[in-house]
């Protein structure tokens, strides 16, 4: 018995620690100035999957779609206890909105044998919380959002407690199911020293290629023999229909982006007159600080 869990994880810029330097003058994000981290609620999703495996057996597979550097979050997941890691990387994934992202992820999840798919509730950069429900729809399975605890798991049945922020709810459903996990679910375990020693050398083929060297296929083979080669898929491996991927597959487009972070100690004195206040209110409306 046991349950196969697939955890979707995202590498994100640390938007909680944004300073003036993190934004370019034109309002775009200076990604270089921001640390890339494991999306916080994805750690809660991973922890929940690890707890299921530890109690019932089965396997935890972590998967991310991202740049080659996103291999970092996969290694981090291996340190913490994941059994297998898969990187989906392909230039043609660029500019995917949540619909295209969930389509690509669904093609990948369908290649796996799964009982429970786990996502974080929300990523701290795109901030949409849409990928989980959209992925569930594409897989044709039930979604349970805002999961805080799995209260019961037996056979193909599951009882979960949801924390929606304005209340809690207990629901019962059957597997397969997709859960989105909130940050109150658990305290994620830290990397285990032994696993860190083992997996610190794990690499994805694209990282090996970037690192260069004479014979990357020999390198891949050597890592694979030690169980340290991170599995990697591109859109061809997924048999994805390109019409639903990347920019072309994304109905939403960005018309304009504005930064709201003020550089340094920028401040203004406003006259305590109707004209002074009108000007300030006008400015705040223009920049959408108020509606």
């Amino acid at each position: 018995m046991g349950y196969n869990c697939v955890v979707l994880v995202k590498q994100v810029p640390d938007t909680k620690r944004i300073t003036g330097q993190a934004m370019n003058d034109d309002g775009t994000v200076n990604r270089g100035a921001l640390a890339a981290i494991f999306n916080p609620e994805d750690l809660n999703a991973l922890e929940l999957a690890l707890e299921i495996r530890d109690e019932f057996g089965g396997k935890v597979t972590v998967m991310t779609m991202g740049l080659p550097a996103a291999s970092d979050v996969l290694r981090e997941a291996l340190y913490r206890g994941a059994d297998e890691a898969i990187l989906i990387t392909d230039r043609r994934c660029a500019a995917s909105d949540t619909l295209a992202t969930s389509y690509i992820l669904s093609c990948a999840v369908k290649k796996l044998d799964y009982d429970i798919v786990l996502c974080g509730r929300q990523a701290i950069d795109g901030d949409t919380a849409q990928v989980g429900p959209q992925l569930a729809e594409k897989l044709g399975i039930t979604q349970v959002t805002y999961v805080e605890e799995i209260q019961k798991l037996n056979g193909d049945g599951l009882v979960a407690r949801r924390n929606m922020g304005n209340g809690r709810q207990e629901v019962k459903t059957t597997l397969p199911v997709l859960l989105t996990v909130v940050d109150t679910a658990n305290e994620p375990r830290v990397a285990a020293a032994k696993r860190l020693m083992k997996y610190k050398d794990a690499m994805s083929p694209v990282e090996i290629a970037i690192a260069g060297g004479d014979d990357s296929s020999a390198r891949q083979k050597a890592l694979a023999e030690k169980g340290l080669l991170i599995k990697q898929w591109d859109l061809d491996d997924l048999d994805a229909d390109l019409a639903w991927c990347g920019r072309d597959g994304s109905p939403t487009k960005v018309h304009r982006i504005m930064s709201v972070v003020l550089g340094g100690k920028e401040s203004k004195s406003v006259e305590a007159t109707q004209a002074g206040i009108d000007a300030m209110v006008h400015e705040l409306i223009e920049e959408h600080t108020i509606g």
């Binding site: 944004i18 934004m23 950069d125 018309h255 982006i257 930064s259 709201v260």
Partner: peptide, 11 residues
């Protein structure tokens, strides 16, 4: 988006 640090207009 971006933790409230940018305002995006989407179409």
């Amino acid at each position: 988006a971006f933790g409230g640090n940018i305002i995006a207009t989407i179409i």
